Simulated scan of single mutants.
Amino acid sequence: MIKVEGLTKTFGDFVAVDDVSFESRPGRVTGFLGPNGAGKTTTMRILVGLTRTTQGEATIGGHHYGDIPNPGRHVGVLLDASAQHGGRTGREVLTLGARTMGLPPERVDEMLELVSLTPTEAKRRVRNYSLGMRQRLGIAHALLGDPSVLVLDEPANGLDPAGIHWMRGLLRDYANRGGTVLLSSHLLHEVEVIADELIVIGNGRIVAQGTKAELLQTAGTFVRSVDNDALARALHDSGMTAVPSGEGGFRSDADPAEVGKVAAEAGVALVELRPADGAGLEEMFLQLTADTQREGDTR
């Protein structure tokens, strides 16, 4: 099990991770979500001993990563698929990993077959790999030691739809066999399909966490008007959220009566006002991280 408790990391005056706590349990895929710069990668780097924490701790199976003997046999890590020696072949990368972990040579062939890298591709230099091929090689290296825990940062980057479907099945099967998966990704639909639990981080702090069912349950109000800009201003001025919805209106965290009252006081005619359906992951993500997004007016 992965356990993060009161984790804080500062770089000078900048707080990258601010009192973060969560768990990722065996048999579950935990989706770790947040905008760029929210603190996801820093948290993962601390977890696997690549960055020192300022305060708090992160453990795997009750141990700090650096204290685990032969950690590759217990924890599979993929933080950057491009961080591989470009002059080595794919087979050489895995062979060195296998030797370091004390694994038999045939394990390399098993992993190459698992991630669908052909014998010809395995002989090519990594510098000549596409990003998708590097991702497959990185996943092979993470699984090389048959670990019980996987820590993956954006593993679907560069994969085509077939590759994403393959990875989804691979991780689902891994978790079903009792493995622990902590998965960071910007592909929200894929996370929604595969994750059992979700952790949302913004500006270095956890803004929501729980099971997928808990976080995506029906809540709030859907509203649409003849002047959505005026409605959005009125809702924001009243301290209510107004997150654009794919249905041509807004989703607000307030109940319909409160939203209707604000619209009436602002003189905005409503076209539709009803309790919101269960939010999709994208809408939930945008609502929870609205004040951390880079889109919009940057003046």
Score class of each variant (00 low, 15 high):
D67Y: 07
I206N: 08
H236W: 12
E57C: 10
V207W: 01
A263K: 00
A232C: 05
T59M: 07
L7C: 09
L216P: 03
A263S: 05
D80E: 11
T42H: 14
A266C: 07
L47P: 06
R124K: 13
E190Q: 15
G267E: 08
L96R: 12
D18Y: 04
V200Y: 02
V108W: 06
P275I: 08
V126P: 03
G249L: 00
G202Y: 05
G61E: 01
G76L: 06
D173V: 03
E5D: 11
L50S: 05
A276N: 02
E154I: 15
V191P: 01
R172A: 15
K212N: 07
N203R: 13
R52P: 06
L183V: 05
H236V: 12
D160F: 12
Y65G: 04
D19N: 15
G86V: 05
E92P: 04
E23G: 15
A232I: 05
V200Q: 02
R251L: 14
E283G: 04
M111E: 10
Q84Y: 09
T100Y: 13
R177A: 01
G296F: 01
L216T: 12
P105Q: 07
K40P: 15
G87A: 04
S116V: 06
A98H: 13
Q217M: 10
M101T: 03
I194Y: 06
E258A: 15
Q217C: 10
E5R: 15
T298E: 11
A162E: 15
G61L: 00
V200C: 12
N176E: 13
A279H: 00
L183I: 03
T211F: 08
P161R: 04
D253I: 12
A58L: 08
D291K: 15
A219F: 07
G248D: 00
S82T: 09
N157A: 15
P104W: 05
Q217T: 10
R88E: 15
V207D: 02
W166R: 14
P26R: 03
T298C: 00
A290P: 07
G102V: 12
I201R: 01
